[in-house]
Design a protein around this nucleic acid. Structure first.
Lengths: 189, 189
DNA sequence: AGCGAGTCTGAGAACAATCTGAGGAATCGC
DNA sequence: GCGATTCCTCAGATTGTTCTCAGACTCGCT
């Protein structure tokens, strides 16, 4: 709750079936304090009245359980967009898609979430898809220019990225170029 | 449409409500042809499904009408900034092309990838295409000035470059100049 | 033709870069 | 504080690149 009043929150997901606290009064409080944070209500209550009440109280969107993750993410993006929050655009290569805003990747139909560092590294790679990204560039984008990152550490993240990008039987997209760095490209070449 | 396939376009604004052509298939076509052009979809359709579909097809951003000009411009700037990665220029001679950024060469329709050293040497040669590049210069560019590189070693790399540049039946491009070095030029001369 | 320096070839050794598995430290939300 | 996640490190295995060697081949010369 304290979190929600911080400075840089763009979108809040609010579950109105919270055990102790009534979600709707949370929303009321939020609206008194902050004007610019978008709020999406997530609820199992799906009667027209519930929805109207939620929206009247100032929610920006109302999502009924159960819902698909895709839809939720798309709505988060849409709401953030409406509230004029600059939204990082997706990066794609072949059937791999990274949504930097949500730290999620999608390969085919499967999705996975990335940690901060994984996401930064994959962004650096996807932005230069096809090109070989030198190790130093990756370190720069993942940790910052004056970071002291061991080789073993970078290897670790490459490994964890690969395990999330590629499942057994799928084409490898993240290739290593010995002595230089890594590259996102198709199996061929 | 022809315009979009030109060389130096950074960002494309795509209206998916185009009269005759479905905007999304335009996008599909674009993505098949060019990899690195950013695309922003502008649409009146703002349901989750529409947005998800647009982004899945590889759009970099999705903007719903109506929108303010400010927002559009800011997004264009953001996308352009992000997708604009400096790319080293290709080096070409006849039907041979080296893309230093990808460590790949293309001869005719075939492509091959080079190792770090191979790429450095071929760059040195192609930059001076038509001229004879002395052995010392090649060693300097491939290994650095104080490197101690045996003749046999340089021969090894010349050989492996040749095997990747020239397939049986193709014209030889990498010629030996006895006592001096090597030269990229046509079969004639 | 015969010679010698220079160049090429095949095979494999040496080496450094990278990968792997396992686990410890740090951080975060509760 | 506690569990979960993320980040980082180490040692050993593995892999491609790089390098070497011996012998065969060219070319220019006499």
């Amino acid at each position: 709750m304290k979190l929600a009043f911080g400075t840089d929150i763009d979108v809040i997901l609010l579950d109105v079936m919270l055990p102790r606290l009534d979600g709707l009064s949370v929303l009321r409080k939020l609206r008194e304090g902050r004007r610019n944070t978008a709020v999406i209500i997530v609820s199992a209550r799906d009667t027209g009245a519930d929805i109207v009440q939620g929206l009247d109280l100032g929610a920006d969107d109302y999502l009924t359980k159960p819902f698909e993750l895709d839809i939720l993410l798309a709505r988060v993006r849409a709401v953030a967009r409406r509230s004029h929050v600059p939204q990082p655009a997706d990066l794609t290569f072949r059937d791999l898609k990274l949504s930097p805003g949500t730290y999620q990747i999608q390969r085919g139909d499967r999705t996975a979430s990335l940690s901060r560092t994984e996401c930064a590294l994959l962004q650096a790679l996807l932005r230069r898809a096809g090109m070989v990204v030198p190790r130093e560039v990756l370190i720069e984008e993942g940790w910052g220019s004056e970071a002291d990152v061991s080789d073993a550490n970078l290897y670790f993240f490459v490994r964890s990225l690969r395990s999330k990008i590629t499942q057994p039987g799928e084409a490898e997209l993240l290739h290593t170029v010995r002595g230089v760095g890594y590259s996102i490209r198709g199996e061929d070449c």
